[in-house]
């Protein structure tokens, strides 16, 4: 027998908290057996599975500093995610990972950070935002831009409210479609950029995570603000079915997203025509 154990064999995790955040997005807190840490870095993902249903790649939403547990927000869009929505606290799932590249938080010490998330893009972004806030003195300005389709699609609403009040965070939020109850900005996420004052492109790193359609528009806006490709970091969505660089589903041109992504510096992928 080949000595290595199966790379497809999951660990066991228990759901310790679960609640609906929107009509389709459910928040989960998981604990691994024995209270072990998942050992992830901000921006990585894991494969979550239910025996008899299947497996799906899900972004990790918590900071690595949250010890003994990890958080995810899972949108009900397929067979596995639908089944996950039907599990209750105390249920167990399989977990493989963490997999993929991460936001290079260590290397960005001393820089201004602007986090641009659209919709469910906030879920992986939150792991980096939390990390930056936990190490607040290591970074310059922290700007958080968040756009949701409408007010029912907003995620982590308590945290959004807290960030908007925190004096060491510049928080800007918008919804694509307004509502009489909504007193904030209305418009797509790119309309927020003009509201940032005294932006220093050379000292800023931008993080961009959102639905496929968002990237082009946000990146053009960042270029207008003199941001260079090497200072723009994106996380791209693909179906990382195996997570270990074999199955081919997540491939963008020559790149396996589960290995060389999902977090990329924009200059590293600008020659990949299928990327954005």
């Amino acid at each position: 027998m080949y000595p290595e154990k199966s790379i497809y064999l999951p660990q066991v995790a228990t759901i310790t908290k679960a609640n609906m955040m929107t009509k389709v997005d459910r928040y989960f807190e998981f604990e691994l057996e024995g209270g072990k840490d998942l050992g992830h870095k901000p921006g990585q993902f894991a494969e979550i599975s239910i025996p008899g249903i299947g497996e799906a790649p899900i972004s990790i939403s918590s900071s690595p500093n949250l010890k003994g547990k990890f958080e995810m927000v899972i949108r009900n869009v397929g067979v596995v995610t639908n089944a996950l929505h039907n599990l209750s606290v105390g249920s167990t799932v399989g977990v493989r990972g963490p997999y993929g590249t991460h936001f290079p938080m260590e290397k960005l010490k001393g820089r201004d950070l602007v986090f641009v998330s659209g919709g469910i893009g906030l879920v992986p972004m939150r792991s980096a935002i939390h990390y930056a806030l936990e190490n607040r003195k290591d970074y310059g300005r922290i700007m958080i831009l968040f756009g949701a389709r409408d007010i029912t699609q907003r995620l982590f609403v308590d945290e959004l409210a807290a960030w908007s009040k925190q004096s060491d965070i510049e928080f800007l939020e918008t919804v694509d479609v307004g509502n009489p109850d909504w007193k904030g900005n209305v418009g797509v996420i790119t309309t927020l950029f003009s509201k940032i004052k005294d932006f220093h492109a050379a000292n800023t790193t931008a993080f961009v995570v959102g639905p496929p359609v968002m990237y082009k528009f946000v990146i053009v806006e960042l270029f207008k603000m003199d941001m260079s490709k090497s200072n723009i970091i994106v996380s791209l969505e693909r179906h990382m079915k195996c997570g270990v660089g074999k199955c081919g589903h997540c491939q963008i041109n020559r790149v396996y997203v589960c290995q060389e992504g999902p977090v990329f510096a924009l200059d590293a992928i600008s020659e990949l025509r299928e990327a954005i």
Partner: peptide
């Protein structure tokens, strides 16, 4: 070609199942 899909199949008893990989193609 070595790309594959991964799927769960459950026995008729619904008590046990298997995670299988099967050929897939781009």
């Amino acid at each position: 070609c070595y790309c594959f899909d991964v799927k769960d199949t459950v026995a008729l008893s619904l008590q046990e199942g298997e995670r299988k990989r099967m050929w897939d193609g781009c």
